[in-house]
Amino acid sequence: MIPQNFDYAAPSTIEEALELLADPEAKALAGGMSLIPLMKLRLAAPGRLVDLRRIAGLREIRQDDGALRIGALVTHSEIESSPLVRSRCPLLAETASHIGDLQVRNAGTIGGSIAHNDPAADYPAALFALEAKVKVAGKGTERTLPLEELVVDAMVTALEPGELITEVIVPVEAASTGTSYQKMRQPASGFAIVGVAARLEKSNGRIGSVRVGVTGLGPSGFRARRVEELLDGTAGSDGEIREAAAVVAEGVEANADLHASADYRRHLAQVFTVRAIRAALARAS
């Protein structure tokens, strides 16, 4: 439980950080909730840690042009408790409150979680349902891409070596939008065995603008477009919800581990999709 030797740098600007990260042996450190345990087990052995936590400006949450811009270094507990996030994007706040335990939420960051892309992380469900975008900085470059393009495979993203996530952009939700995150916790780690986030609107007795994000089921989080299509325009009866949720795992190569087989995960994905949609529907006005 002792890491290998490493150098440590704590730059105060993004530019400095990107300069340091140009070294292929360097690795960015945000909250350290995934990286530090891997280093202690010597499963990861970066030559240098570039600690991002002293960079001003990566810890802000602001509203801008109908979107919330959340700095990459904002912790889960800051998101959970931010009045701005709670009122403008309650799905993200609710999801953050389900992550790990209090200590993890106090240290772990949204940017770190997205960059690590653990298949069982909670955020992807909400972020896919919110059609989040991610701002990425590289040496002399900056780009904004949808989460769907960032996420490649389990633990793998489209980030180029030396690139950093700087900001997560989610839409400001209308007060009438209904959202919910429903999850089965893995009892040891608190990760999602399966987690489903739903957002939807309701007008004239019909459901619209449905978005469903799923985590834990496959190699990465994903948007369940087939479920959305089937539900869009329906009245949201129990039967309609069940029918839509039934396809959530179609075409997904489901994960399996000690805690849940692939079959069980596929089943849970349906159950929690139903629950998330029902809860979102109850909250929509």
């Binding site: 499963l43 653990d118 298949p119 069982a120 495979d153 389990a154 633990m155 793998v156 893995q186 780690s189 990760f191 190699p219 190569e253 994960n255 399996a256 581990d257 000690l258 805690h259």
Partner: peptide, 11 residues
Amino acid sequence: GQRLLDATARM
């Protein structure tokens, strides 16, 4: 690595 073995192998 139990939690990620299967996902990693398939990846």
